[in-house]
Amino acid sequence: MTAGFPLPDTTDPRLAPFWEAAAQGELRLPRRVHGTGFDWYPSGAEVEWVRLPGTGRLFTWSVVERPLHSGYAGITPYVSALVELDGAPGVRLVTRLLEAPDRLTIGAPVIVRFTDLGTPGPETAVIAPLFVLHCVKDKS
């Protein structure tokens, strides 16, 4: 039951390494071989897909209360989020947070959770880097 959900073309060469890594439970983004920084979104520069720790901070979010795309019925309401990733300065990852919105603050630590794109609705069989809050334990 994934009718209408906007699934990615995981074979598109510009993003295939991203989706392949996610299927293995890894977050990888394209870092430029020449020059500095990440080639995000991919422009065709020569890159290596480096593995990232999967932690970061919440840059901003919104709460979509009603499906604005018919395919989103199974995930709505949901938290749309942009995440600044540790190890990838300058990149804001587009993702969803699997959290109740009243717990969120900008700058909050978050951590990746590889799960089905359609979570919590019908399965899509595509694994993606969604995020949850990262509750860092108080060591004092």
Binding site: P6, P8, R14, Y41, H69, Y72, Y78, S80, A128
Partner: peptide, 8 residues
Amino acid sequence: AGYELPFG
């Protein structure tokens, strides 16, 4: 289509 829409 290949990245943003799948994440909502």
